[in-house]
Each structure stands twice: as structure tokens, then as C-alpha cells.
Design a protein around this nucleic acid. Structure first.
Lengths: 93, 93
DNA sequence: TAAACAGGTTTACATTATAAACTATTTTAT
DNA sequence: ATAAAATAGTTTATAATGTAAACCTGTTTA
């Protein structure tokens, strides 16, 4: 009935991040920050958790002279997200 | 885009409780405990929070000689649940 | 009448989330 | 040239939250 909800995804900010990445495939730190209306600190921490879980990959480079952090969802991340959504539906229908 | 998710509802156990109550209108403590597969302690705490938020009402009585706790969703609870679900959909589509 | 069970509640602890403070560098203003 | 402000983040301290273990009160069973 109520399957457990992946705690890594059952978090407002991380879910928003994953939601964006699943449709965009790739997004910059600043873009995610704007879209999710989060603080940089919070975003940084949550991206770290998603990366450590293997749900996203993070690439660091430079855009001109400025540091640039680019995030991409992994296939594992897509799978986890889809399973989370499936499970969640049992709670909200 | 990403409307804030009511933190009171964005919790696996409380969401499961509300999900049950929204379709059943009324449920006993032990029933909720079984259906949600939660411990009594955790359930007790979460029911308290939902009651304090005005999302459910709790009535205490006796079934024979045994104490009986009956939970019921309030109209405020229904409204909050529906809004939560609406907001959540923006995250999972 | 002692032990086990029912139906919870309280509390202690661990986990989590979040923002404030910080670092490093770059751009702008003086 | 240099001080001030802005960019792009990271680290860390604290508050909030979730959870189970321990507890309580009464009841049933051995």
C-alpha cells in the first residue's frame, strides 16, 4: 500500500532539483538556484547529497573566468525519481 | 513554479495518515498503525502534530474497557491535503 | 497474583534542513 | 592602483524534525 518514499527525494529542494534536471538533462548551479529560489548554501549541500547518492553528476569548469558548476541527472537518478513518483501516487490518490 | 510544500504534510507518515483519513473519514489508532506500518510512538507523535495543526480531530473513548482513539479529518485538513497534492504535482510532472 | 498484553504517551537521540558566515576570485568605481 | 561590491560557490553552526526505546495505565490470561 504505502511503499517507503526514498528519503533522498522526499525533500522539497532536492525534489525540485531533480524535477528540473529530469526535463533539462543539464543545468547550471545559478540556474537551479534561481528556479528553486533557494539559498546558495542550501543548494550546495543538497546537490552534494544527490551526487553522493549517484543521482546526479556534477562537473566543475569555468565560464570565462568564473567558476561554473554544471549538474546532470544520471540514469540511476532517473530510475530513482520515477520509482519515487510511482510510490508517491499511492499516497495522493 | 515550485510552490512551497506544507511541511506538515510533506512527511511520509503524516501523509499516509491523511491519505487514509481522506478516504475513510474516520479511523482508529490501531487501524492507522497497521495500515501505515508505523510504531505506536511515532504514530502518536504525528497524530498530535496533525491535530495541533487543525488537520484532524481526535476523540478518546472506550471500546469495552479498553481505551480507544478515533481520528477524523477536518475540512481544514481536506483543504490542506488538496492544496499539497496540487502543489506537489508541479514537482513530479 | 504474577506475567503478558493492549493501547497508547513521553523522552532521548539521531538525522536533516537551513541560513549565516566564510573563501576565493572578478568586476566596478574612485 | 586600490577599495568596494559582486559572483560563485563551500563550510559550519544551529534549529527543527523524525523515530524508536522506554515508559505508563489498565486488562486479560495462566
Amino acid at each position: 500500500m504505502f511503499k517507503p518514499l526514498d528519503p533522498l527525494l522526499h525533500s522539497q529542494l532536492r525534489l525540485a532539483i531533480m524535477s528540473l534536471l529530469i526535463s533539462l538533462e543539464e543545468a547550471e548551479f545559478t540556474f537551479l538556484k534561481e528556479k528553486t529560489e533557494s539559498t546558495a548554501g542550501n543548494l550546495s549541500v543538497q546537490l552534494d547529497k544527490l551526487e553522493k547518492a549517484g543521482y546526479i553528476s556534477i562537473e566543475k569548469s569555468f565560464k570565462g573566468k568564473r567558476p561554473l558548476t554544471t549538474c546532470k541527472i544520471t540514469s540511476e537518478g532517473i530510475k530513482a525519481f520515477e520509482e519515487y513518483v510511482d510510490n508517491l501516487k499511492n499516497y495522493i490518490q
